[in-house]
Each structure stands twice: as structure tokens, then as C-alpha cells.
Amino acid sequence: MTLTLIGRSVRLTRRNPDTLLMSILLPLMMMALYVYVFGGAINTGTAYINYVVPGTIVLCTGYGATSTSMAVADDMRKGMIDRLRSLPIRGFAVLTGHVAASVTRNALATAIVVVAAVAMGFRPSASVADWVLAMGLLLLYVLALSWLGAAAGVVAKSVESASVLSFFMLFLPYLSSAFVPTHTMPAFLRGVSEHQPITPVIETVRGLLTGTPIGSTGWVALVWASGLLLASFTLATWLYRRRTSD
């Protein structure tokens, strides 16, 4: 039953290639822009392409969450949710379907970013175990953001207002160590960027893939990602219950 709804969400994504294309192409172009235009002027202590890959992957997850919230908002508004809720199934499964589709989209985006990065000179030093750990952490993070997107979609009054979430999702990575090391930022921004969840996730993935020191950041990232996942899943469940019980 949930599989059917996942299949539906994936199919709806495939039928809407504009969104899919945007959510992969835009991060790719950002990566190229940073590598070939700004990267030369940014001193990261390593080849800039090696520095920027984790940030680009995380940028993609922001798009993933945004499309999740828009797809959920569309279902809530168009009456699809009423049809599903009047069937003898758990209506909540429609959210699970959209989140699973978001994970699938992100897996595809990540693969494309990595392949493109390798073509642009990215040389990861990671072992198989490092890759598995990095992908595991990213999966946790993607799940957390997608459930947050689903929660936003449940409460959004329209598909347009659901896309407001994209502002935060796409802006926050710039206030992290995604594109420039945080120590180059003014003190107040550094405070923000070092204590938001994206920085430890990026630092950990970067460490795993390119061998930069991780230290305790790995644990911080893990706690952030699982905490966010728990919070956003709870929030989505609660909002869905509230929205559907009148």
C-alpha cells in the first residue's frame, strides 16, 4: 500500500521534469560557478572542487525538501487527501510516499553531482566504509529535511506558500561551510554558521570523502540529523492529525 503511494509520487516527479531538472541542474551550475569562477579566489587549503562537493549535495537536499512540500500541499488542497482518507488505508501513507520519492530524487541528484564533480577533477580519498558512512549520514539528513518539507506542505494554504520553505532551504547552505570556510566570515555570521546543522553535516561528509579532520563533528552531525528527523517526523504527524481532524 505504501509502495503503491511511493510509486505514485515517483511517477508524478518523473512526469514533472521541470522540477526534477531544476533541482539537479541548479546545484550543478552553482558547483561549476564556484569551482571555475569564485573557487580560485577562495583558499580552502585543498583543490576547491574537493571542498565544494558536500555543500553541493546538501544544496540539492534543499530542493528535494521544497518539492516535497509542494507535492504534499497539492494533495491536501486538491482533495486527493480526502479520497485516500476515505479508503481503508492509512491516509498518512501519502506523506510517506512523497518523502520516499524525495529520497529517490536525492539519491539520483547526489549520484549526478558526484559524477559531474569527478569529471571536474574531484578526487575523493574515501574507502568503501567512508562512502557508506557519508551516504548514511546524508540519508538521515535528507529524510529529516523531507519530513520537514512534508510538514510544511500539510499546513501550507497553497502550493505557492509551500514554496516559501525553499527560501530557507536554499539560503541556509550559504551560511555554512558549504562554499567557504566559516573562519573567513565575520564573527556574528560565524556563530550562526558553526551552530546550524548544515555545517557539521557538510564537515563530516567532507572529512569522510576527502580525509579532512572530523574530530567530534561526526557525532554532532549525527545528533543534529537524527534529532531533526525525529522532530520533523513528529511535527508532520502532529500537523497531519490536526489538519485532518475537524
Binding site: L12, K78, G79, M80, R83
Partner: peptide, 8 residues
């Protein structure tokens, strides 16, 4: 309002 998926 017809609850159908336009893209399917």
C-alpha cells in the same frame, strides 16, 4: 472537486 492525479 474531482480527486484525480492530473499527471497520471
Amino acid at each position: 472537486y474531482a480527486a484525480v492525479d492530473d499527471e497520471q
